[in-house]
């Protein structure tokens, strides 16, 4: 871990100023000289590994007073960026009206980490690619642009099959972001110029030729809130993994359905553990709309979701697995009892 200056920001303006001041124009956010510290579960971890080397840390936890509210409404759910994962997961109205959100959070990490990690920090968490996390490997395009990718032909069981490029196959590791992307969430971003909103689906960038640029967030910008339109009581987060708990997904699916009289009026499908970013399977969703559910439909949806998937040496199984996870999540969503 490199030395850094530490300061606490007492309000958003100060945080933004501090983060912007240290920002060099040429650096992507992930290498910005100043990094915000919230729960610290990604930042401190990666600093210890020498993967991240900020010269300044801006502790934004004092902003939680204004930025951690959990506000369910009939039109939309608003979640403060600094709300803790555990608090959101345990919120009764979220459990009732957004089970996909509650469960994506409950099935992530451990109780301790969920107590520390904030929602914004969680969606910004970085890949678990072993080669990215080990600086003794020079060849990581995410860390050292243009240096190559050790994972491509290395041990890549955990790596992505969707959204990959010839530069990077690192998996986006989170769970909650799949729920957000499925539910058409908006993300509110606070920066020097004030506050702007964008669809959450646009926040993360697939690696393409710039795997070091992971999100649309600019240095000096902070996520201040998320909002989720509508209510999705018929929603499921299904996560497959080797261990029963405390493990990143091999494959997961966030599914939300609006079923009326046996007909699917609206459907959302997002995939985790298999893609480089929180992955919305829009073509697959389209097959569901206006249809009555059966297993054949589920199969077609699953096939569509993974139509473009490309496996590598050790992760090819994720395609078949991912399809079965989607099918099962759909079945569970269709048959689940809605608490009113």
């Amino acid at each position: 871990m490199r030395p850094f200056s530490y300061q606490r920001a007492s309000d958003p303006d100060m945080a933004v100023r501090a983060l912007s001041a240290a920002a060099a124009a040429s650096n992507p956010l992930t290498k910005a000289a100043a990094q915000p510290l919230a729960g610290g579960t990604t930042l401190i971890d990666l600093m210890k590994l020498d993967v991240m080397r900020p010269a300044a840390i801006v502790d934004i936890n004092s902003l939680a007073q204004g930025w951690s509210a959990i506000e369910p409404g009939s039109e939309a759910l608003r979640l403060g960026a600094l709300a803790k994962m555990s608090d959101v997961a345990a919120h009764a109205e979220i459990e009732r009206n957004y089970p996909v959100i509650a469960n994506s959070l409950k099935l992530a990490a451990s109780a301790q980490l969920r107590n520390m990690a904030t929602l914004a920090g969680n969606v910004m968490q970085r890949t678990r690619c072993s080669y990215f996390r080990d600086v003794s490997y020079e060849n990581c395009n995410k860390r050292n642009p243009g240096s190559g990718c050790a994972a491509m032909d290395g041990v890549n069981r955990m790596h992505a099959v969707l959204g990959t490029s010839d530069q990077c196959v690192a998996t986006y590791p989170g769970d909650f972001a799949q729920a957000l992307v499925a539910l058409d969430a908006m993300v509110e971003i606070t920066g020097k110029a004030g506050t702007r909103s964008m669809p959450f689906a646009q926040l993360h960038k697939t690696p393409g030729n710039t795997p070091d640029i992971e999100t649309m967030l600019q240095p000096g910008e902070l996520i201040s809130a998320f909002s989720v339109p509508g209510q999705w009581p018929r929603s499921v987060y299904l996560k497959a993994r080797d261990r029963q708990s405390y493990e990143f997904a091999l494959s997961s699916a966030a599914v939300a359905l609006d079923v009326q009289g046996g007909t699917i009026r609206d459907a959302r499908v997002a995939l985790g553990g298999v893609a480089t970013v929180p992955w919305r399977a829009r073509e697959a969703e389209a097959l569901l709309k206006g249809q009555k559910f059966d297993d054949g439909l589920a199969q077609r949806v699953a096939d569509a979701a993974f139509a473009d998937a490309k496996g590598r040496q050790h992760n090819g199984f994720k395609i078949a697995l991912g399809k079965r996870v989607v099918m099962r999540a759909l079945q569970q969503a269709v048959t689940m009892e809605i608490r009113s």
């Binding site: 678990r128 072993s130 955990m158 080797d242 261990r243 029963q244 708990s245 990143f248």
Partner: peptide, 11 residues
């Protein structure tokens, strides 16, 4: 210990 898997309580 995140990638070399040993059982957790839930296992």
């Amino acid at each position: 210990l995140a990638d070399y898997l040993v059982p957790v309580n839930a296992d």
